[in-house]
């Protein structure tokens, strides 16, 4: 089945087995291996991407459903070669450890900041409760999101 969608800002038309999961398509056909599979059941958040600007699990979407949608993966954040403010904030606030949850965590945070440019700590913790990090108590992650939010607000908002 030929599917037409936008992937990391580029229009794509691709012949895909529609019954495959989006996570497999992204990782295997587009080599976007930043999308990580930690559970495959929508519980850990490692495969979080943005679909039409909203965080979703790439393991909970079928390829055949992609027509007309706009997808953004972690790779799309730094497509210009330069890391996005959120990515920088994660690094600078020591919010990256083993790194396996990081892409999904950053995308969940991205989704939050698109809707809420100035989240409280509680709002951040609630928004990332679908993403599991086992390397921390989430403190540095919360700090990173707050830091990125402040920097984005200073720049005039998230893109």
């Amino acid at each position: 089945m030929i599917l037409h969608f936008i992937l990391n800002s580029k229009p794509v038309s691709k012949d895909l087995d529609p019954s495959r999961r989006l996570i497999d398509v992204l990782r295997e056909d587009f080599l976007l291996t930043g999308v990580k599979e930690g559970c495959g059941e929508g519980e850990c958040g490692s495969c979080t991407i943005l679909m039409d600007g909203l965080p979703v699990h790439a393991c909970m979407v079928l390829a055949g459903q992609l027509d007309g949608h706009r997808l953004l993966t972690i790779e799309g954040l730094s497509a210009s070669g330069e890391l996005d403010i959120l990515q920088q904030a994660f690094i600078e606030n020591n919010a990256v450890h083993c790194g396996f949850c990081t892409p999904g965590m950053i995308m969940a945070a991205k989704g939050l900041l698109l809707q809420n440019p100035d989240p409280t700590e509680e709002e951040i913790r609630t928004a990332i409760s679908g993403n599991i990090c086992r390397c921390s108590d989430y403190r540095q992650i919360v700090m990173a999101v707050k830091d990125a939010a402040a920097r984005l607000r200073a720049q005039g908002g998230a893109r």
Binding site: G42, G45, T48, M51, L54, P55, V56, H57, M60, V61, A108, G111, L112, A127, S129, G130, N131
Partner: peptide, 9 residues
């Protein structure tokens, strides 16, 4: 229901 991601989907 579930997480943000589940509610979006």
């Amino acid at each position: 229901i579930g997480s943000v991601q589940i509610r979006n989907r």
